[in-house]
Amino acid sequence: MSDIYALAKVKALAFDVFGTVVDWRGSIDREAQQVGKTLNIQRDWALFADAWREGYAPAMDKVRQGALPWMTIDSLHRLILDSIVEPFGLAGLDDAQRDDLNRAWHRLQPWADSIEGMSRLKRRFTITTLSNGNFSLLTNMAKQAGLPWDCVISAELFGHYKPDPQTYQGTAKLLGIEIDELMLVAAHPSDLRAARAHGCRTAYVIRPLEFGMGHPPYHVDEDEFDLVAEDFNDLAAQLGL
């Protein structure tokens, strides 16, 4: 089957969220700045955002290895937060204050093109999250940011984190479609490679500012993914919308 026919079969687009749909780094930076201002603490809050995010993959690996029980991303984020507060001068935050800061991940703001591009794509395709973020996090984020999902699918529903195969296969099953009728949209090649290995179609969306100015782009081989787009509007155009 040629690529054009393969893409014509696609019925649903499943989106990675952190970094692909929303600007986690800029959003966490801004929230932490407000906390710092309230406490009269000056730090590099973008570096704080980076440190928080850097704990994400290792924490999930601890769950996979059995060193930690299964837990939501909210719970993992809180563990990571507790481990980095001291070097950033935030050790004095009480539990309620830490909980509120932890919920900054529920309040992440979308990239400038996200809502418009997703609304265009929604005209033809079912659009859903496929994120390691827990169900309540993704629901709250959608409500606060105005994200126009048809539904919210979380790794929490499968008891597995991406890139475990159960997440991609489970999403297709929940949507009542074949795995090759599902396209993963993501800014992270590793996520897309895992999805492709399990039969999904793939769309790589370039987010050059996810990690800030000057961060080197991901290496992607030519024709590695079905589509490569500059943003969601470009993806919509490539899909004829």
Rank of each mutant, 00 (worst) to 15 (best):
H188G: 06
E181T: 04
F125C: 05
K143Y: 02
N40S: 14
I84A: 09
Q166A: 15
E86P: 00
D23N: 15
V10S: 02
R107H: 05
Y204T: 08
V63F: 01
Q34S: 14
D50Q: 12
D231V: 04
Q33A: 10
E224H: 03
N140M: 10
T171D: 09
C200Q: 08
M1A: 12
N40H: 09
D231P: 10
L47I: 13
G26Y: 02
D191H: 06
I153P: 03
L239V: 09
T128E: 03
D231Y: 02
W70C: 02
Q97C: 03
R25A: 05
D113M: 06
A67F: 04
A57F: 12
T126F: 00
I153T: 08
D3C: 02
A96P: 00
G117M: 06
Y204K: 05
A49V: 09
S119L: 04
A172G: 04
V35T: 13
A104L: 02
S136M: 12
L7T: 09
G55W: 00
P217H: 06
D29C: 08
L76N: 04
Y161W: 01
V22L: 08
W105H: 04
R64K: 12
G240R: 10
A14K: 11
W111S: 07
P58Y: 00
Y5Q: 13
Q109T: 11
T128D: 08
Y218F: 15
T202C: 07
Q34M: 13
A229L: 04
D74R: 03
A197E: 15
I80F: 01
L68A: 10
A142W: 00
A155V: 07
N134T: 06
K162N: 12
E210I: 03
N40K: 15
A172W: 04
L138W: 00
V35K: 07
R103H: 14
P189H: 10
G240M: 05
A91Q: 15
L7M: 13
P217L: 05
G176N: 07
I80T: 15
D150P: 04
V21G: 05
P189M: 09
E230R: 09
L101N: 08
E86Q: 14
F88G: 08
D61H: 04
W105F: 15
A236E: 07
L137Y: 00
L184H: 05
I153M: 08
D180G: 00
Y204I: 06
D16N: 13
A229F: 02
E31Q: 13
D23F: 01
K122Y: 00
V185P: 13
A12Q: 05
S190E: 14
L184Q: 11
D226A: 02
A237Q: 14
Q34V: 09
W105E: 08
L174R: 13
I127M: 07
L93N: 13
L121H: 04
L13N: 03
S119V: 01
E54P: 00
I4K: 12
A59R: 00
P189R: 11
L101G: 09
D61W: 01
S114E: 05
P163E: 13
G89Q: 10
E156K: 03
Q65E: 15
P217E: 11
